[in-house]
Structure formats: structure tokens, C-alpha cells
């Protein structure tokens, strides 16, 4: 579904150049939920921006469904970390969700219905008429997820989506992602620096090195579903996996790059 081969990206040039990614290879199967973890400053966001077509990588290539990514593909949606800067404050919640649908062959009524359905699926059936600033942080991030869902992408990218909310909300949103992926057939790539989260949410966890980033670990997560915040996290497989991922990430932080 998603093929990344020999990807490199350098910011700037000369001696001050920053090599964010170097020789990164990764492939993601259709319908997979892949979590990417790595130390902060590892070039995770650069990777996401390359996949989304927001930047042109300086080397290598990204293909989605076989097609080379040059600009943002039509079948891709992104949920950014900072919901307050990603939802448009000048529009109601329903308009925010419905806005990207204008490009699809849908009339106003269909767009409105699709937005309402997406809001219902994230538990915000009543919030459509409100403005984003009238909602809590967790609710705003739900709106951002609803916007992505309504768009019906084949690939959904999530950039530290739960990094700016409190712990309880975070768990709720993790479960929301697991729940919506059951209803919508899509591939999800979720970037996080939270090791527990990556194991809890993912079908597979990929660990990135420090910058210049490449893949240093690739683990399958075989935990029973549906997952549960209490029982899954106390399961010995979970404990084992998170230790393994943790060791990979930690190990990187100790050895100087």
C-alpha cells in the first residue's frame, strides 16, 4: 500500500546541513495500523511530511498504491498533533469536517450528512454547530479525526495525535482509533514518541534511529483484539513488547550518533 524506498532528506546545505532522514526503507500493507516510534528529533515529522507530499524529499521515493507521491494524494488524510492550529477557528465544527468534501462529487446535503455521520462516529453528534474553541482539547482532536474519516482516505497519517491531551483523554482517543479502524477500511500510520502507545495501538511497531533516521527495529504486535486499556496493558506479551521497543529507543539515546 505504502512503499518507501531509500528515502533521504537534508535540510539546508553545506556544513550546517541537517540530515533528517537517510536511506530509510519501509513498506506498509493495506489495512495495517503501523506505529512509528523514535527519540525526539529523530526525523519522524519529516518522514510524515514526505509521505503526505508536504515536502519533496531530497532523495529516494514514496509510493502510495504504486503511485509516486509528488503532491498530497487525493486518498490521504492527516491528523496533526496541534488540533488548535489545524481546525479552522472561523468555521463551525460541522463546516470544518465538511469542507474537504467539496472536492468530492457530493452536493451540500450529502456533505452535511457525511460530516454528521463522521462526528457521530467519534462521539460528537451534538457538537456540529459549535466552534472549535468551544470544545475541550480532546474533543477538538476528535473533530480532526472526524474530518479525516469523513474524507474516506485510503491512508490516514497521524502525527503525534495525542501528544497535547491529558492522560485520560489520551486513552480514550487511542481506543477511538482502534474502534474507527474497524468501521473504515483504511491503512493508518501513527507517529508517536510514546512507547506504550505504539504497542497498545499498533499491529506493528517500527523504531527509528536518531537523525539521520533509518529503521532500526520492526516488530509485529500480536495482541488479542479488541484491546483494553487495563487487561491488554497487563498482559505479559504487552509487557515484553514494550520492553523490547523501549530498549531499542533507549539504546539509541545512549550511544552517540
Amino acid at each position: 500500500m505504502l512503499e518507501i524506498s531509500n528515502l533521504s532528506h537534508v535540510y539546508g546545505s553545506g556544513p550546517g546541513a541537517h540530515h533528517a532522514i537517510e536511506g530509510l526503507n519501509l513498506s506498509v500493507a493495506e489495512g495495517e495500523l503501523l506505529c512509528i516510534v523514535g527519540p525526539s528529533g529523530a526525523g519522524k515529522s519529516t518522514l510524515l511530511r514526505s509521505i503526505a507530499g508536504l515536502i519533496q524529499p531530497t532523495g529516494g521515493e514514496v509510493r502510495i498504491e504504486g503511485k509516486l507521491v509528488k503532491q498530497t494524494p487525493d486518498n490521504l488524510a492527516v491528523v496533526f498533533q496541534d488540533y488548535s492550529r489545524s481546525l479552522f477557528p472561523w468555521m463551525s465544527v460541522a463546516d470544518n469536517v465538511a469542507l474537504p468534501l467539496r472536492r468530492k462529487k457530493m452536493d451540500k446535503q450529502q456533505r452535511r450528512a457525511a460530516a454528521q455521520e463522521a462526528l457521530e462516529s467519534v462521539g460528537l453528534a451534538e457538537a456540529g454547530k459549535k466552534y472549535p474553541f468551544q470544545l475541550s482539547g480532546g474533543m477538538q482532536q476528535r473533530v480532526a479525526i472526524a474530518r479525516a474519516l469523513a474524507y474516506r482516505p485510503a491512508l490516514m497519517l497521524m502525527d503525534e495525535p495525542f501528544g497535547s491531551v491529558d492522560a485520560q483523554t489520551r486513552e480514550d482517543l487511542e481506543d477511538l482509533v482502534l474502534q474507527v479502524r474497524g468501521h473504515h477500511k483504511m491503512t493508518i500510520v501513527l507517529i508517536t514518541h510514546d512507547i506504550d502507545e505504539s504497542v497498545y495501538v499498533g499491529d506493528r511497531v517500527v523504531v527509528l534511529s536518531k537523525a539521520p533516521a533509518h529503521v532500526v527495529g520492526d516488530l509485529k504486535v500480536e495482541l488479542a483484539s479488541p484491546r483494553d486499556q487495563i487487561t491488554t496493558r497487563e498482559h505479559s506479551d504487552f509487557v515484553h513488547l514494550r520492553a523490547e521497543v523501549g530498549r531499542l529507543v533507549r539504546g539509541l539515546e545512549r550511544t552517540p550518533a
Partner: peptide, 13 residues
């Protein structure tokens, strides 16, 4: 805000 512009680009607004 650059993220408004990123959002616009992602959703082709």
C-alpha cells in the same frame, strides 16, 4: 499559521 496552510494542502483547499 503554517499548519493552517499544511491542512489546506493536505485537503486540497
Amino acid at each position: 499559521d503554517t499548519q493552517y496552510l499544511d491542512t489546506a494542502q493536505v485537503f486540497h483547499l
